[in-house]
C-alpha cells in the first residue's frame, strides 16, 4: 500500500517535471539557435530593419515586415472576433432561453475543433474569391481574408470565455440592475459586462495570443512575401509562416539562413509569453472580489 502510493506520487511528480523540462528545453533551443545568429547580425538591425530577405542573394535581417504581417492578420482577426464573440456571449447570457443556450454553445465550440488547414483553404478558395467580387485589386494571397477567417476561428474562444466571465458575475447584481428598472440591454452593458471586464479582457488577450501563433491558416491564405505594410489587400508573411517556409525548404542546417527561424521563433515566443503573462496579471489584479 505504502509502496504503491509512493510510485503514484512519483509518477505524478514526473509528469509535472517533464512538462517544466520540456518548456525549459524549448526556451533553451530557441536561445541556443539564436545566439549564433545574433553574433552575425546585430540586434538593432534585427528589430529595426524593414527588409527581411534572408533567402535572397542580398540578405537583409529586419524582422519588422514579419511583425507587421503578424500584427495585421491578428488585428483583423480580433476586429472580427471581438464584436461577434462578445455579442454572442451577451446574447447567450441575457437573452437566450436555457434550451437554446445549451444548443448554441456546443455548436459554437465545434468551430474551435475544425482543423486550421481547413480554415486556410476556406479563406483561400471561398473568402478571397468572394471578397474579390467587391475589392477587384485584392490579391489572391492577402491578409484580409486570412484575418477574417482567423477571426471566425477564434470567435468561440472569446464568446465562450466571456460568457463564462459574465456567468460568474453574481446573480444579485443582475437582480439589482433589474430592480432599478434597467432594461436587459442596460443590464448587460452597464452592469454585467463591466463587472465581468477582467474576464473579458483575458479572453481577448488569449485570443490575440492564439492569433499571433496561428500558422497553417496564414501560411495558406496570406502569402509568403515579407512586406513592411499595413495594407490588408496584398500578400504578406507572418512570423509563423516564415518559420514553416524555412523549416520545410532546402535551407542547409546550421547556416545563417537556417538560424533566422530561431530568432523569429524567439520573437514569437516573447510575444505570446508576454500576452499570457499579461492576461494572468490582469486576472489576478482586477478580478472583482465578491463574497
Amino acid at each position: 500500500m505504502k509502496l504503491s502510493e509512493k510510485i503514484i506520487e512519483g509518477l505524478l511528480w514526473l509528469a509535472a517535471t517533464i512538462t517544466i523540462l520540456v518548456t525549459i528545453g524549448i526556451i533553451w533551443v530557441l536561445l541556443s539557435g539564436s545566439i549564433p545568429f545574433f553574433q552575425k547580425v546585430s540586434i538593432i538591425e534585427f528589430i529595426t530593419g524593414t527588409e527581411w530577405t534572408p533567402l535572397f542573394a542580398k540578405k537583409e535581417f529586419g524582422i519588422l515586415p514579419l511583425v507587421a504581417g503578424t500584427f495585421l492578420t491578428t488585428a483583423i482577426a480580433i476586429a472580427v472576433a471581438l464584436p461577434l464573440g462578445l455579442t454572442i456571449a451577451i446574447y447567450l447570457n441575457e437573452y437566450a432561453p436555457a434550451r437554446l443556450k445549451s444548443t448554441i454553445k456546443p455548436v459554437l465550440e465545434v468551430l474551435a475543433t475544425i482543423p486550421t488547414v481547413v480554415y486556410g483553404f476556406f479563406a483561400l478558395t471561398v473568402v478571397t474569391p468572394f471578397l474579390q467580387g467587391f475589392i477587384p485589386n485584392l490579391a489572391g494571397f492577402n491578409a484580409l481574408s486570412a484575418g477574417i477567417v482567423m477571426g471566425i476561428m477564434i470567435i468561440p474562444m472569446i464568446s465562450s470565455l466571456s460568457e463564462d466571465a459574465i456567468s460568474a458575475v453574481p446573480k444579485s447584481l443582475r437582480e439589482a440592475a433589474y430592480g432599478m428598472g434597467s432594461t436587459r440591454l442596460q443590464t448587460a452593458f452597464k452592469v454585467m459586462v463591466p463587472a465581468a471586464s477582467s474576464g473579458i479582457i483575458v479572453s481577448v488577450i488569449l485570443a490575440i495570443s492564439r492569433a499571433v501563433g496561428e500558422t497553417m491558416l496564414v501560411a495558406i491564405a496570406a502569402g509568403q512575401q515579407p512586406r513592411f505594410t499595413l495594407n490588408p489587400l496584398v500578400p504578406i508573411e507572418t512570423i509563423t509562416t516564415y518559420i514553416v517556409q524555412v523549416s520545410l525548404g532546402d535551407v542547409p542546417h546550421g547556416s545563417l539562413e537556417y538560424r533566422t527561424i530561431f530568432a523569429a521563433g524567439l520573437v514569437l515566443f516573447v510575444f505570446t509569453f508576454a500576452l499570457n503573462n499579461l492576461s494572468f496579471w490582469i486576472k489576478k489584479k482586477y478580478q472583482e472580489k465578491y463574497d
Binding site: 453574481p170 437582480e175 439589482a176 433589474y178 430592480g179 432599478m180 428598472g181 434597467s182 463587472a195
Partner: peptide
C-alpha cells in the same frame, strides 16, 4: 417602468462594482 416606481432592497447588500457615487446615480443615468 414599473420597477422605477417600485424600488427594491435585497437581502444581501448588492452594490454594483462601481464607485459610491456611480451606484447612487445609476438609476438616473439609465
Amino acid at each position: 417602468e414599473l420597477r422605477k416606481r417600485v424600488g427594491m432592497v435585497f437581502q444581501k447588500p448588492n452594490p454594483f462594482p462601481k464607485s459610491i457615487y456611480e451606484n447612487v446615480v445609476y438609476g438616473l443615468k439609465i
